[in-house]
Simulated assay, not measured.
Amino acid sequence: MTPTPPSASPSASTGDTPNLEFTGTTPYEQYVRASVLSHLQQPLSDDPGEMSFLVTTQVMELWFTLLVHEWETAARALRGDDLPAALAALGRSVYELQSLNDSWKPLAHLTPAQFNRYRSALGDASGFQSAMYRRLEFLLGEKSPAMLVPYRHAPAVHAELEKALHEPGLYDEVLRWLARRGHPVPEAVLGRDMAERYTADPGVEAVWLRVYAAEGAEDGAGDAEALRLGETLTEIGELIWRWRNNHLVATRRAMGAKPGTGGSSGVAWLEKRATKSVFPELWTARSHV
């Protein structure tokens, strides 16, 4: 019988001698699936810069996936009145959004000539077709039944998005949580059609004004937990705004005002998106504090 080398057993490893013998693939590969990730890039042009575009875009998709996970986790926690768990997930998402924004850096300084070398490889592909980004937008209240149309021939994806369309978004769960704490959130807002885009409501603005105006109140009338939640959402809202502006600026630098891929209007469409704020009353209430 051939003795098993000491390095074949993790328990036999010393602090400075890692285990190098495995019966199959490495545990790292089994857990991370790194070889799958590193073989997902299939450039369609001869330009070496296309690899950067592909990897950066795929990294963004991974961040979208993680953010959807965090915000769905936060929404469930709020439904269960577990604010610490909700704030933990939202807090993680702040750092993840910062990393998502940093993902623009490899593409932020593309010149038109550099982008044109592989732009034709995209064909009709466009970022607005990203199903995971659509789920992210739905969670932020940016809902529209029309945005399901691109996925009508992909049943599994369509079903996931349709479910997300009709479920309460993150902000809806925040407002329901505030209502259960005694804040006068309007019934029309709480009972709204969840498949429609969230629009600002003066009654919700009044709730946030009440929360922020009572900050540090000596009589103890302030709601410190609501204030902390509001500030975390404000941080998220600011980073979403920065994401949209980073997208706008990178696109403007790479292609100017030319039409975008996939039939979008390119910069003109992104400019409209960049002017919108998520969690709108958190921003407008500040004008009245």
Rank of each mutant, 00 (worst) to 15 (best):
A113N: 06
R197Y: 10
V174Y: 08
F128S: 12
E167P: 10
K105T: 07
S126P: 13
T2H: 06
L161D: 14
W243A: 11
P84I: 00
N245T: 12
K143D: 01
E137Q: 12
L100C: 11
E173A: 04
D172K: 10
K258M: 13
P168T: 02
Y31N: 10
A268E: 14
E50V: 10
L227E: 05
N245Y: 11
L175K: 05
W63S: 08
W208E: 03
T284P: 12
A89D: 03
R176T: 06
P18L: 05
V204W: 00
T25P: 13
S93V: 07
L100I: 05
N246C: 13
L97Y: 05
A85I: 05
M60F: 08
D46H: 12
Y95H: 14
M60S: 10
R244F: 09
S126C: 15
G169H: 07
K276D: 00
R210H: 11
L62M: 09
P150E: 09
D16K: 03
K272R: 11
L190C: 10
Q114R: 13
L90G: 03
E61H: 11
W208D: 03
S144A: 06
T234Q: 08
K258P: 07
D16L: 11
T17C: 03
T111R: 09
M132V: 14
E218G: 15
A268M: 01
G222D: 09
H166S: 03
A12P: 06
A214G: 04
N116T: 11
L107N: 07
P5E: 05
G169F: 07
P48D: 00
W63D: 15
E225A: 15
Q42R: 13
T232P: 07
Y198C: 01
V185Q: 06
L107W: 00
L178P: 10
S7Q: 11
P27M: 09
E29P: 14
L110W: 14
V185N: 04
T234I: 00
V185G: 06
S45W: 11
R181H: 09
L229S: 02
A146K: 11
E21M: 08
H153I: 11
P27C: 08
V157I: 15
P48E: 01
D124N: 13
M147S: 12
M132E: 15
E238I: 08
L170N: 05
T17D: 06
H247K: 07
Q98S: 15
L161R: 05
P184A: 12
L161I: 12
V211G: 01
M1P: 13
H109R: 14
H183R: 03
S144N: 13
A195W: 06
L170E: 13
K258R: 14
E70F: 06
G222F: 06
Y118W: 15
V157N: 01
L87I: 02
R228P: 02
K272E: 12
T57N: 14
E215A: 15
P155T: 10
T56R: 01
Q129R: 15
G230P: 10
A88L: 08
G230M: 07
P280N: 04
L178D: 03
W71Q: 07
H183N: 04
E235P: 03
L148N: 09
D219K: 06
R273L: 14
M147F: 06
V36P: 02
